[in-house]
Design a protein around this nucleic acid. Structure first.
Lengths: 150, 150
DNA sequence: CTCGGAGTTGAAGCTCACTTCAACTCAAGG
DNA sequence: CCTTGAGTTGAAGTGAGCTTCAACTCCGAG
């Protein structure tokens, strides 16, 4: 026990992420694994940090694709240093700040706004589809970009 | 123009929500419409408020099902008063406060946490699958509830 | 060597929140 | 009356983020 590398089961147990999800993440290029002679995955302990980063970022509402982009900024040749991670976390911090700002605005405006009828108007500060808090969400999305005013 | 009721196209234009989405919301019971003799939808202006509430709530990361539950607390017999809406918004406000609190915690912990390695541990304050910020997310979800410790 | 639990793959399934399509009908102007 | 644009329906498709299944193989304890 306490070896240099982890099996997928061990990584799953330690990260709290299902093994099937870990394989999925690998397909997307979010994490990487060595293989044993018998083709089984062996994870470097550093992968734990990646998995944790993925889950935390998801909780903030970032898509896996965006998370991948962020992770791709880490050096691939060497194991990322604390400084490498710190740079990533700084970028995320800005994201969080913005999100917190928007939520605060939403909270402060909601009471006053919702009763007065301004919610019916597109001009309402709360109702600006542009500065979406929650990315875009899932689903088939097209239906021609809404005209500036219709 | 400026009639008592709105067609689906008008509601779509005013709310910024696609007509197909409005029909979908109706199926889910989030909004309601009268019908003309020729079976076309006619929306009371009060529905605009409902649509706005739905979209704003979605931006905060609430699922349509939860939004429906909230809307169901509005009186169905009469048109909701500002007070009715205010009650709803108070409940949402608590939600927002909690979300803001969690995001703030995340932001404050991230820098220190991510470089040090504690992210690898389940005990990390950041890495508590319990107080999920983003509900549960989409997808097929089962795979037996994770055992208390594995 | 044998056994059982852990691991492997690809393909298919699932939920959410919609959109898209086909094949219509309605409503209003000319 | 005719045309045109807006509206109607149900069914099927989409994308994200996984899970589930079947049919295997691997690996470590006994």
């Amino acid at each position: 026990m306490h070896e240099a590398t982890l099996t997928i089961g061990q990584l799953s147990a330690r990260s709290g992420v299902a093994a099937s999800a870990l394989r999925y993440y690998e397909r997307l290029g979010l994490i990487r694994a060595e293989r044993t002679g018998g083709n089984q995955r062996r994870y470097a302990r550093a992968e734990l940090r990646r998995v944790a980063f993925v889950r935390i970022s998801q909780q903030v509402g970032v898509s896996l694709e965006e998370i991948k982009e962020a992770l791709d900024s880490l050096p691939s040749s060497r194991t990322p240093t604390p400084d490498d991670w710190a740079a990533l976390s700084r970028a995320w911090r800005d994201r969080l700040d913005e999100k917190i700002r928007l939520l605060g605005k939403l909270r402060d405006d909601l009471d006053g706004c919702i009763g007065c009828g301004c919610l019916s108007l597109q001009r309402c500060t709360l109702y600006n589809p542009g500065d979406s808090l929650a990315a875009e969400g899932p689903g088939a999305r097209l239906m021609l970009p809404r005209p500036p005013d219709a």
